[in-house]
Nucleic acid binder design. Structure first.
Lengths: 233, 233
DNA sequence: GTTTTGGTGTGACGCGCATCACAAGGACGC
DNA sequence: GCGTCCTTGTGATGCGCGTCACACCAAAAC
């Protein structure tokens, strides 16, 4: 393991929400123990149910987190980008992976092993507290999602999903992007519905002038109307 | 604050999953700062949306955690007993309460304030790690619940709920109790369905000899059949 | 006593959405 | 050229379950 590698990994770790607060030296120590792993688009990073002994921070590229629902539906839970961390649940409590993760694009991950991280959790109170904050965020999001899935109609879920992906929900609307490249099947998977009904809903909105569907792109024309459909509270 | 009180609170804290691992002295310190609060059955302990600066451990009695779904339905998320901890999410990240909590019976709670607990999280690595484990458990349960709500039919959700409450699911089946005192409306709230359909489902099962409904009690006659309906994996 | 309240049991009706079925248009390799 | 694969688009059909409606019974309140 050469020094340049370590510096690179340290740089990547420092960009992650969880590790950014740590001292430079601690980051270096962690980086030295971390592995840098590359995956090609489509590769399986890990499977639901496998035992997890590591967590990953995304250095480059993006990954898709999905899980097998009881009725054999495969639901997309999240799309994660560079800087995001995943796999920490299984690592922290030593349990099974609760979801599948696959590389959406070619990507580089900084992999930290359980046996390497645990000592730091006990020795670095800041890291532990930060990890707790991360878990709390996850828990809140997860609960919100649950409520959505359970009690919102399909159009409302679609609207919320579009707004969330485009960055209009729980992000500042300033740098929201209006052109999305999503297949209708992908949307269906994310909201737990069928492709057909997603289609019907989107076409209705297109006729109403709220969105536009042009050569594979989904363009949001009227954010406010969409937010109305989302029943934004 | 007299010494007997402190000892009592320390005793109660030590029974909780989270604090049991701490040294006797640390427990005493925490106990000294904690308040012992009593609530009468039906009292509101806190409301969804309020800012939370404290967490509670149940010393006596039981509480019901519920939340208002987007469509104004009130869903029962959990029923907690003595020894359980709740309210820790809002305390840990300083956010809003994500659910309502009401006293189901008369109960006594040991209340710990955010400003008192935070120093211990940083100073007591064991506590931080234990708290992380607790959050991980919550997250897993929450995710499972989400999947159930989203993709299981109503009868399957009822079956799972009955098994969980009776202790047959994710608990050892040895000390499972077969007689439950639940109103059908309560079941409906827990699974996010209507009372009428819960009734229809239960009566079907009664005719099939899987359960029995006698003077307000719900008696599980055939656990295995019920597990089949739950699609137990 | 009577009235009110809360749980229970059932039928009728309709909406939302999954399912099935099929057509049409591009992108790709042969 | 032609086949195949994926995405999109739309109609028909059916099931689950929410909603409304009403009847029954017991316990509590008057």
């Amino acid at each position: 393991m050469n020094n340049a590698d370590t510096i690179q990994k340290q740089d990547l770790l420092s960009k992650s929400f969880v590790f950014g607060i740590l001292d430079h030296e601690i980051q270096l120590e962690l980086a030295e123990k971390a592995r840098l792993v590359r995956y090609s688009a489509g590769d399986t990073i890990f499977d639901q149910g496998s035992t997890g002994q590591s967590m990953m921070a995304i250095a480059k590229g993006s990954v898709r987190v999905s899980a097998l629902a009881p009725t054999a539906r495969n639901v997309v839970l999240a799309d994660l980008q560079a800087g995001d961390v995943f796999g920490e649940i299984a690592l922290l409590d030593g349990g099974e992976r609760s979801a599948d993760v696959r590389a959406s694009t070619n990507c580089e991950l900084v992999v930290l092993e359980r046996r390497h991280v645990l000592p730091y959790l006990k020795g670095q109170p800041d890291l532990a507290v930060k990890m707790i904050t991360l878990l709390c965020q996850r828990l809140r999001k997860s609960d919100d999602r649950m409520m959505e899935f359970a009690f919102l109609q399909l159009p409302e879920r679609i609207a919320r999903t579009l707004l969330r992906i485009s960055g209009g929900l729980d992000g500042d609307p300033v740098n929201a992007k209006d052109r999305l490249s999503l297949s209708q099947s992908e949307i269906a998977d994310m909201i737990g519905g069928t492709r057909e009904n997603v289609n019907r809903c989107l076409r209705r909105w297109q006729k109403a002038g709220i969105i536009d569907l042009r050569d594979g792109w989904l363009i949001i024309l009227d954010r406010n109307k969409l937010a109305d459909f989302a029943g934004d509270t």
